[in-house]
């Protein structure tokens, strides 16, 4: 049969000679290889002390954003819920009342905003759909939990800390994305 490539090699199946059959030479060769590995650099990242950098396009847990004065950006327009291919997002809208201008940027806001992290596929389409820059995907991922309920993240889990009252937490939560 015509060989497909020139790389094919005929395997010899001679019986082993006595020296080969006590395996020593081949074992020494193998030991030399493993010995070389003792001096190689370890690729391990020592996790809790050292954390591996996320890639710049990593998409983690969602964050509901506030503007510089600490007001929520979200207007509960529902575009993110529509855009979501996994149907993980639900929300309930409410009207902003008098005296709440420092809490919500627009006249309408999300009274309830829930993302089911078990359904979410972290595609980032909600982030793209949002006209108000109210939601974006951060650099953390969902921690484990014992119950399904624990994976339904409400506003209290998603909302970024207030930049006016809690500036350090805000900076930590914001990351280097925006």
């Amino acid at each position: 049969m015509q060989a497909l490539t020139t790389r094919a090699q005929q395997v010899e199946r001679k019986p082993l000679s006595f020296l080969e059959s006590i395996y020593l030479w081949n074992i020494f060769k193998g030991m030399a290889i493993t010995f070389k590995h003792m001096f190689k650099k370890q690729p391990t990242v020592h996790y809790p002390e050292v954390k591996r950098e996320f890639s710049p396009v990593f998409r983690g847990l969602h964050v509901l954003n506030r503007d510089a004065e600490g007001r929520e950006n979200c207007t509960a327009c529902g575009l993110c819920a529509v855009a979501c291919p996994a149907e993980a997002i639900t929300m309930e809208a409410a009207e902003r009342l008098e005296g709440e201008e420092n809490l919500y940027r627009e006249e309408k806001y999300a009274a309830k905003y829930e993302i089911n992290m078990l359904r979410c596929i972290f595609c980032g389409l909600c982030e793209e759909a949002c006209p108000k820059d109210a939601i974006y995907l951060s650099e953390t991922f969902a921690p484990s939990d014992y119950s399904r309920k624990g994976f339904i993240y409400g506003k209290e889990n998603l909302l970024i800390p207030n930049p006016v009252t809690h500036p350090t937490e805000y900076a930590a939560a914001k990351g280097n994305r925006i």
Binding site: T34, F35, H37, M38, K40, K41, Q42, P43, T44
Partner: peptide, 8 residues
Amino acid sequence: AAILQDRP
């Protein structure tokens, strides 16, 4: 074992 396999 770890050192021979490039692990800590």
